[in-house]
């Protein structure tokens, strides 16, 4: 993970996601009634208005939907950390997570690049999901 970034503040709607990260499981919220994915995690299904949710463990395999390369350090803490990639990773159930693409140079990132989840530890012991390029062809 990048150093010096804001830490996520869990709330009652998102806590299971962060708890899953501590166990190195990528748990994503899916509507119990209609199966629609919710992102970011929230209290109601935007498709059917059900408030029931199942936290389903993701395969952690996805593809790059879009990305930018942050070339310009927008904060002094980033001066030695640019360039870095901020990508949107397409997973199951129409859910796209934001992550950095590890394991390749920024100019090697491309649309639909296959990636898989990894978990990275912050200084305070918390773990967050991130993504790396899948090395072998499926």
């Amino acid at each position: 993970m990048l150093e010096g970034m804001p830490r996520p503040l869990p709330n009652l709607d998102t806590q299971p996601f962060w708890d899953g990260c501590q166990e190195e499981r990528l748990l994503l919220p899916r509507c119990s009634a209609c199966g629609e994915g919710r992102w970011p995690p929230g209290p109601m299904c935007p498709a059917c208005q059900s408030q029931d949710v199942d936290w389903i463990e993701s395969s952690g395999r996805g593809r790059v939907y879009s990305w930018i390369v942050a070339n310009h350090p927008v904060h002094p803490v980033l001066t030695g950390q640019v360039p870095y990639v901020v990508a949107m990773i397409e997973l199951e159930h129409n859910i796209r997570l934001v992550g950095n693409v590890m394991g390749c140079a920024p100019d090697e990132v491309e649309a639909d690049l296959p990636v898989e989840v990894i978990f990275e530890r912050l200084e305070d012991g918390r773990q967050l999901p991130n993504f790396r390029r899948v090395e072998t062809a499926e």
């Binding site: 993970m1 503040l9 992102w39 970011p40 942050a70 870095y84 997570l97």
Partner: peptide, 13 residues
């Protein structure tokens, strides 16, 4: 620390 949607964005820069 950031909550809401930002919790799923800012930690990754």
């Amino acid at each position: 620390e950031v909550g809401g949607a930002e919790a799923f964005q800012m930690p990754w820069g």
